[in-house]
């Protein structure tokens, strides 16, 4: 095994690790958007996806692309996502707040369906 092969292997492993972590964050964000109780809490779950998950996946792809012009383009896409996603989140939140959307402010802790059956 030559040195180049080892470097390529390390690059592939790092890329796979970054990709897997990013996918976990993206899927968790999507699940959170489905499961959380009200609009303002769902907004947080969407934030997980947009900040860290997207950046990790973009960095993983940059590792795959190597030191080329394509990597610079990917970096630009990541930068634009990094700039726009919090701005869009704030815009949605601000619009909802101004439109009089009331956030849920009490503790939300529903019992598991199995436990509820046990109570009844």
């Amino acid at each position: 095994m030559t040195v180049t092969e080892i470097i390529l292997l390390i690059r592939d492993i790092a890329s796979i690790a970054l990709m897997a972590t990013g996918l976990v964050f993206v899927l968790a964000g999507a699940l959170g958007v489905l499961r959380l109780p009200d609009f303002f809490t769902r907004m947080h779950a969407a934030g997980v996806t947009d900040t860290l998950g997207a950046e990790l996946i973009v960095f993983s792809l940059i590792l795959q692309a190597g030191f080329t012009l394509l990597a610079a383009k990917l970096l630009l896409v990541g930068f634009i996502l990094f700039l726009t996603s919090p701005t869009a989140t704030h815009a949605v939140a601000n619009a909802a707040h101004r439109a009089g959307e009331k956030p849920l402010l009490s503790r939300f802790h529903p019992k598991h369906p199995r436990d509820r059956e046990g109570d009844a």
């Binding site: 968790a28 109780p37 947080h44 779950a45 934030g47 997980v48 956030p103 503790r107 802790h109």
Partner: peptide
């Protein structure tokens, strides 16, 4: 803080206390 939100979203029983 991402890890904390991840835990909150993936817990089998959702337990959040939103604050403003």
């Amino acid at each position: 803080s991402n890890v904390a939100v991840l835990k909150a979203a993936l817990k089998p029983e959702i337990d959040v206390t939103p604050r403003l």
